[in-house]
Amino acid sequence: MPTRRSLLSPVRSDAARTVPQRDTPFDDPKARFQAGLFGMWLFLATLAVLFVSAILGYVVVRVDNGDGFIPANAPAPPSILLASTVLLVVSSATMQRAANAGRRGDPAQGGMMLVTIALALGFLAIQAVAWRQWVTQGVLVADNLYAWTFYVLTGMHAAHVLGGLPAMAITAVKAARAAYTPDNHRGIVYCAMYWHFLDGAWIVLYATLWFGSLR
């Protein structure tokens, strides 16, 4: 007969205390990496849907309102955004170089990560300057939908850059110690995937805003 036993009966396996928590079900690091790559692709698919729906929302109100969407005397998106675009594209290239170096276990990974982060900060600084330019020209977020969509969409992208920076920083610290090796370079590769995505998303977003600002 099965015995009655409470769930809370005081049995414990003390051996378990010394075992660190298992943070992956994969025994084989390669399988773990493959799973991670797949997971990153799914995550990027989610983000892609997020950006596409935001852009779609913009397109709907832009098309609905015709050229009346753009108020008289409203400026085009600041041309300084071209410079930030260049910075972001270059940072994507340096990020890839960092990831490649990580894959080889090459100590150049640390330097390349630092350059990437510097470029990312430069990108954010220019975005801030662009916002400031519009603000000083008196184009404020609550004025009209033309301004609102500009601030919201560029802000959404900047938030994703900003949100990526802590992970980038951790990766850079590890890369500075040349922690990424041919056997383990998951983190730096995931970073690169995210970064390329933000690069592509920005180009699409900027192109959309630019075309939208044409009468």
Binding site: L47, V49, V61, V141, W148
Partner: peptide
Amino acid sequence: LATPVLGITVAMLVIERAFNIGI
């Protein structure tokens, strides 16, 4: 594939409510 659409929608709604203007 569907949930991010809700995410961006409520995010835009929050911004709209905060600034009293939105799409």
